[in-house]
Design a protein around this nucleic acid. Structure first.
Lengths: 199, 199
DNA sequence: CTACCGCTGGACCGATGAGTCCATTCATCT
DNA sequence: AGATGAATGGACTCATCGGTCCAGCGGTAG
């Protein structure tokens, strides 16, 4: 695309991006062709390449970034303010609810595994997401430690890592089985562990 | 394929299966064509369809089953005998080591996410694997409870579910980042939680 | 008004890859 | 030995899909 985009151009680009994201979410990368995107966004082939000159790879990367941004945004404001047990519980419920609604359409998982090992640029996006995620959890734990509500001897980073792993795994299991129990169990037990450490 | 396979036929079928599995592990489903399988197994197109008449879908399903069987087998004998803290630790080390060696080639993850949402038959395989996995962990927890080494009030199934989620998530994170820390943290904290429940 | 430039439509191309088909070889049993 | 059926080789077809190209449209600045 050219350096300058008009308002109309920006709108079209956005429409393509969101249409592609929806398609990928619903049918997976393997089952999303540029013609599908074209059809669902009411655009033409030349528009796709006008706004994403490097083709499908660039479009998918933009989709990945778009979805990654949403993941953390959807957990706010609680994830960024884990400063009370009430906030932790609200966050836990929000995460569960978010993935329950999302059902089997997990954009992160879809992208991680379908392009993960190969595309280094995509890896960067996923790694950035995981680091930011874990960082906010760890910040929450430290906040609770500062208030004496979580044991000071507990390793905040390691605990956050384990909690993040539990979430990721809970989502993986949900994608395979449709059950939320694993995600709930992982979250509940991690939080319970934090609470128990206070004494 | 015909109902009757000679010894030679069985060997060829097996060669195709393992070659396809290796290819999928190394390069992913998307980057594995039947021609690749043909080349790596020194077979011809007609052989592929002779032994897997329903084509690529059937072959990939067989690969999935093959890999799923390996996952639990590789964790033995410890996973089936989680009757002492020593066994738990040995199992934990084995899991970490197994995935460390495997690196970014996770057959389960590759298959789960690349075909997961679509193929119901594959879902069945993955669900079966997860249930068996969790079942053996839960059995280990109950064994420890019977010995009084784990608190009797602890919900074995839910604890096993959370532990399994931690493993899955640890692997997911490892696939994305290359780091083993999340898997280790998830395993260690889950086991620590079991130990702590005894008192 | 008009010239410019971004925007759009869609035909077309070339590569890839799944699946088909038939001819040939090989092993085994009578 | 000969017959039967499995095992094999590989050329071929057909569909799909990413990407190219060029011609036409439209809004906006001068």
């Amino acid at each position: 695309m050219s350096a300058t985009l008009t308002a109309k151009g920006r709108a079209t680009r956005q429409r393509i991006l969101e249409g592609a994201a929806a398609q990928v979410r619903e049918r997976g990368v393997a089952n999303t062709s540029l013609d599908d995107v074209r059809a669902v966004t009411s655009t033409s082939k030349s528009q796709l390449f006008h706004y994403f000159p490097e083709g499908k790879a660039q479009l998918l990367l933009a989709v990945a970034q778009h979805e990654a941004d949403r993941v953390l945004a959807d957990q706010q404001p609680f994830l960024g303010e884990l400063t009370s047990w009430r906030a932790w519980q609200a966050w836990r419920d929000l995460v569960v609810e978010r993935y329950r609604q999302q059902g089997q359409h997990c954009p992160l998982s879809v992208l991680t595994s379908q392009l993960g090992p190969t595309e280094p640029a995509l890896r960067t996006i996923v790694v950035g997401l995981l680091e930011a995620w874990q960082g906010q959890i760890a910040a929450g734990i430290r906040s609770m430690q500062a208030q004496g509500k979580v044991g000071a001897s507990l390793d905040a980073d390691r605990s956050a890592a384990a909690l993040l792993a539990g979430i990721q795994g809970g989502v993986v299991v949900m994608l395979a089985t449709g059950e939320m129990t694993h995600l709930e169990a992982a979250l509940d037990q991690a939080i319970e562990r934090l609470r128990a450490s206070a004494g």
